[in-house]
Design a protein around this nucleic acid. Structure first.
Length: 422
RNA sequence: GGAGGGAUGGCCGAGUGGACGAAGGCGCCUGUCUUGAAAACAGGUUAGGGUCUCCCCUACGCGGGUUCGAAUCCCGCUCCCUCCGCCA
């Protein structure tokens, strides 16, 4: 949610932001119109309410029967007028809220202009893409051959794009989760275990509703949604709270499964475990003062990078252009790891600053030290790596000519002595 | 799933139609006193909104309703507690 003041005071800035994202700036004028109407109504109805409050107190003091009745009769009309205006105001307010909720965040000035993902900018590459001289099997062949991924069983019980991890495969994923959480704790994040289902309010707060309704799973009887990312419950954690400025920044990490109900287009990433309706992820999330956001963004990116580096993976940092930038984000860096089996750069992490966009929706505020007024904190989120893709990269990068897979050093403490999966 | 009780400010807790944004207490802040602190005393201490240093409006779990006027009455919902049932 954007600040209504931006529309009042600097509407051109909002229009420009929409154009950069390739969107129509026309709704800005609609907001201004509704906001003006809203404030006109407020002034009118509040004047009447003030009058009513004054008169009502007088009525309470009036002893004379006839005089009292006369005053009551006079006020009855005012009361009707008030309820009429209140109703009108409610409608206008509702329209304005609905409209405001549809605006994407304003891209940071540093974000390069571009129409779509083809115009994203590779900032740097760390390591050399591995291209072994033997034929690297893609994970969808290797996994079943090693008996650690079973696609048929997943499809049998649930449907396409579901799979079962088995034995060392399941264990490898669990090792990754445990190792990543421990790493993030060392980096200064507090671990949270959260609900995997949340109410509509929480989905709205995180910016998933109303726009991405079609991409999420819902229990219609209970009005509960399955989280598409841990970012959702980590945003919900402090809904409606006023945080103490001295406590910022708050840094959290959480493991959750993620559920996404995408209309999977035929032919796109259909093979393997790259894109499923259910996947696991370890997430980082930060609440900070606006003035600290740049430093925190750098930290989070460095923290996510460290994950790739310690796993010994070749990766590159990609800055998203305005046309590819997510709805909520002001600025986003993707981390992609090279995987020689699928022969592509896999997006394993996306690190974003969303400004006060989510805090505003969630009603999370903080009181700067020594100040009376409250402000909205900035929030940042980033994956400490999505697991299926990290798993793909490990299976394909650590593959030996004989089809066995070496377990990365850092994961071995969780692998019960397994150094090679064969 | 069934029966009953409850939800008031940072916390405890009063309030059953008008003087209540809300008694009293605790906590916190400021001042007086003190060499300093404590104690005592005095004052202050919610958030959001409006043409916003004054002033006005809104909010007593949430949403409706009754009324000139609602923390207080009515309806619906949510959450918490107790008991019964069921359950990993």
């Amino acid at each position: 949610m954007l600040d209504i003041k931006l529309f009042r005071e600097t509407p051109d800035l909002v229009r420009e932001a929409l154009r950069k994202r390739g969107m129509d700036p026309a709704p800005v004028d609609e907001v201004i119109k509704l906001d003006t109407l809203r404030r006109d109504l407020i002034r009118e109805v509040e004047g009447l309410k003030a009058e009513r409050n004054r008169a009502s107190k007088e009525i309470g003091r009036t002893k004379d029967k006839a005089e009292r009745q006369a005053k009551i009769d006079a006020m009855r009309a005012v009361g009707d007028q008030i309820s009429q205006l209140d109703e009108q105001l409610r409608q206008v307010q509702g329209q304005l809220n609905d409209l405001m909720a549809t605006f994407p965040n304003i891209p940071d000035a540093r974000v390069p202009l571009g129409a779509d993902e083809s115009e994203n900018v590779v900032l740097r590459t760390v390591g050399e893409p591995r291209r072994p001289d033997f034929k690297v099997q893609p994970h969808w062949d290797l996994g079943p051959a090693l008996g650690i991924i079973n696609f048929e069983q997943g499809v049998k019980m649930t449907g396409s794009r579901f799979y079962v991890l088995s034995g060392a495969g399941a264990r490898l994923q669990r090792a990754l989760i445990a190792w990543m959480l421990d790493l993030h704790i060392r980096q200064g994040y507090t671990e949270k275990y959260t609900p995997f289902m949340v109410k509509s309010d929480t989905m709205f707060a995180a910016g998933e509703l109303p726009k991405f309704q079609a991409n999420m799973y819902k229990d219609h009887e209970e009005d509960l949604w399955m989280v598409p990312t841990a970012e959702v419950p980590l945003t919900g954690l402090h809904m409606g709270e006023i945080l103490d400025g001295a406590d910022l920044p708050l840094r959290y990490t959480a493991y959750t499964p993620c559920f996404r109900r995408e209309k999977m287009s035929a032919g796109r990433d259909v093979r393997g475990i790259k894109r499923g309706h259910q996947f696991d992820k370890v997430e980082m999330y930060i609440y900070c003062r606006p003035e600290d956001a740049d430093a925190e963004l750098e930290k989070m990116l460095a923290d996510a990078e460290q994950t790739c580096a310690e796993l010994g993976l070749t990766y590159r940092i990609v800055q998203l252009c305005t046309g590819d930038l997510g709805e909520k984000a002001q600025i986003t860096y993707d981390i992609e790891v090279w995987s020689p089996g699928v022969e592509e750069w896999l997006e394993v992490s996306s690190v974003s600053c969303v400004g006060d966009f989510q805090a505003r929706r969630a009603g999370v505020r903080y009181r700067p030290e020594g100040e009376k007024r409250t402000r909205y904190p900035y929030t940042l989120n980033g994956s400490g790596l999505g697991l299926p893709r990290t798993l793909i990269a490990i299976l394909e990068n650590y593959q030996q000519p004989d089809g066995s897979v070496i377990v990365p050093e850092v994961l071995r403490p969780w692998m019960g002595g397994i150094e090679v999966i064969r």
